[in-house]
């Protein structure tokens, strides 16, 4: 049996809390970029590193869409992080095998699925907004990301079944 790493849980909680903060910072930055793309689009795309585009309209529209899609990712990330934190709380309380955790895993799986779909959309927009002089390449398909989605749906199901079995056993003498 693999030995447990006692510090894993406190480290995980700390990392999750930091990620929540970083998520909000990311949201603020993307929102600022989106506002700038409407307030002064040519200056903004130049500041982002795109100069003398032969299709400025498409590039600006593409950048706006990508920024908007980036904002949609913020609540999805928050859903994942908050639920992971709640699950670590149940581990600290001494009983993680709860129906609520099975439900949380499922919600996390759906949120990650949403993020993978967002990535596909962002990649599509980037491809459409690309020009001869400025090719925006954003990877569409992340094998590890999609594998994580499948893994989490399976894990959620396993957790639900295990919790039901544990509940059955709880009243067995």
């Amino acid at each position: 049996m693999p030995t447990s790493f006692p510090a894993a849980l406190p480290i995980a909680r700390l990392v999750l809390r930091v990620l929540v903060i970083l998520n909000w910072i990311y949201a603020a930055i993307v929102l600022a970029i989106l506002i700038a793309l409407f307030a002064n689009p040519y200056w903004t795309v130049t500041a982002l590193g795109f100069e003398s585009s032969d299709q400025p309209g498409a590039l600006i529209l593409g950048a706006r869409l990508i920024a908007a899609l980036g904002l949609v990712a913020v609540p999805l990330s928050l859903i994942v992080l908050r639920r992971l934190l709640a699950m670590t709380d149940t581990v600290r309380a001494g009983d993680p095998f709860l129906r609520e955790n099975a439900a949380r895993l499922q919600v996390i799986a759906w949120a990650l699925l949403g993020q993978q779909v967002l990535q596909l959309l962002v990649s599509f927009v980037a491809r459409v907004a690309s020009s001869e002089t400025h090719r925006l390449h954003i990877a569409a398909f992340s094998p590890s990301g999609w594998l994580a989605v499948i893994l989490l749906f399976v894990l959620a199901r396993v957790f639900a079944e295990g919790t039901a079995m544990r509940d059955d056993l709880a009243g067995t003498v």
């Binding site: 059955d168 056993l169 709880a170 009243g171 067995t172 003498v173």
Partner: peptide
């Protein structure tokens, strides 16, 4: 504790 659970009718199953 387990026998009390059994006696008071709170057990779900008995081995």
């Amino acid at each position: 504790a387990n026998l009390s659970i059994l006696k008071t009718g709170k057990a779900k199953a008995i081995r």
